[in-house]
Design a protein around this nucleic acid. Sequence first.
DNA 1: GGCTGTGAAGAACTTCACAGCG
DNA 2: CGCTGTGAAGTTCTTCACAGCC
Lengths: 216, 216
Amino acid sequence: MSRQNPGTGGDQDSLPEPTVSRLPLYLRCLDRLYEAGSPSIDSVTLAKMAGVAAHNLRKDLAYLGNLGVRGSGYDVGPLREKITRILGADQEWKIVICGVGNLGTAFANYLSRSKERFVLDALFDNNVNRIGERVAGVTVSPIETLPEVISGNGSYLGIITTPPEVAFDISRRLVSSGVRSMLNFAPVHIDLGEGTMVRNVDVGLHLLMLSYHEML
Amino acid sequence: MSRQNPGTGGDQDSLPEPTVSRLPLYLRCLDRLYEAGSPSIDSVTLAKMAGVAAHNLRKDLAYLGNLGVRGSGYDVGPLREKITRILGADQEWKIVICGVGNLGTAFANYLSRSKERFVLDALFDNNVNRIGERVAGVTVSPIETLPEVISGNGSYLGIITTPPEVAFDISRRLVSSGVRSMLNFAPVHIDLGEGTMVRNVDVGLHLLMLSYHEML
DNA sequence: GGCTGTGAAGAACTTCACAGCG
DNA sequence: CGCTGTGAAGTTCTTCACAGCC
């Protein structure tokens, strides 16, 4: 295994999906505890912070291995590191945004500012008027040039903020260029199987945006 | 019952959550079929369009009542209307955005452009520098003035794009002002119970944004 | 005959109760 | 004694097979 995917991390591969989706929540709480200097935390308190049932939290953390200390709780440091590694949040991700509409632009601007674990690498759009335009310091390119851009080494994360009609095509292009992790905001379910990680962003958003093509 | 919530719609109240979350997907497909002039559609084809299993689709639609026609499929028009009503997509929603960061601003700009079923009604932020500023034609107000703004009649939809620390407080304020439907983008689970609809947007987003406070 | 609707079987996740370890 | 870890029970959703209607 050479690369990790965010959400289906490497050595810890067969966690239940609902568990994985709660890990970022726990991680955020652990970050707060870490910054506050708390050395350990018990399941009831942490569950309250994260807004989940304590039963559920303990079960989730039990999947990660024997990280708890009976009688006292969980050591914040090790637990934090473990979850961070599972989520792939310890490595740098090169971000490729496909679809530079409102949402894509918001992402681009955000990412160009926060130079932490995510680096804005490329922007793609099929609108001829937008090609060549600079957004957040990166030039918008036609999707056909994707293979050339991805040729570099490193872990790429594709963000699909295109209209739904082309989302699947885009995901195929990303995969054939070697991108293994994608975050899909288009209101279609993309399931490519074959060891590829496509996280389809919750339809809750689409509830609001029954006509939000324009934002994409 | 005087108001509907998007996602937990009125007369059709006890649908399984996963079913509800797939309805927008179906609706989008039906919209396309409607525009293309197709009078009816069978479950296998529609399931393929939506990217779900046909079994699952038939079960979902069966919950909505006997809308199918055995031997031919589903009539696009009636099915479309039914789902639209369940999702509350037929009525006008007054949008109240709490937290005018990158994401909140993106929403505001989007909503001010698409004057369809959603009307941007108010913007709130606790940053003193932003109060009074105009975004998308609406003036940013301090959260304390929320009760005055919500005093009007109509269906309100609160969008929470604040940092997680204050998200819960905001949700309480919205509820006590009479807002019954909320879409929460902050990386905490908010569960207010008591007939209130808070849709916590998928943590998939948070996977990417382990440090995305800045965008909020 | 074709396609939907449905009860039953199966799978996945959550909740529970308590055993087990520090 | 306190709190985690875990097998078992319970619940919810999905898959299946076929009955039922056009």
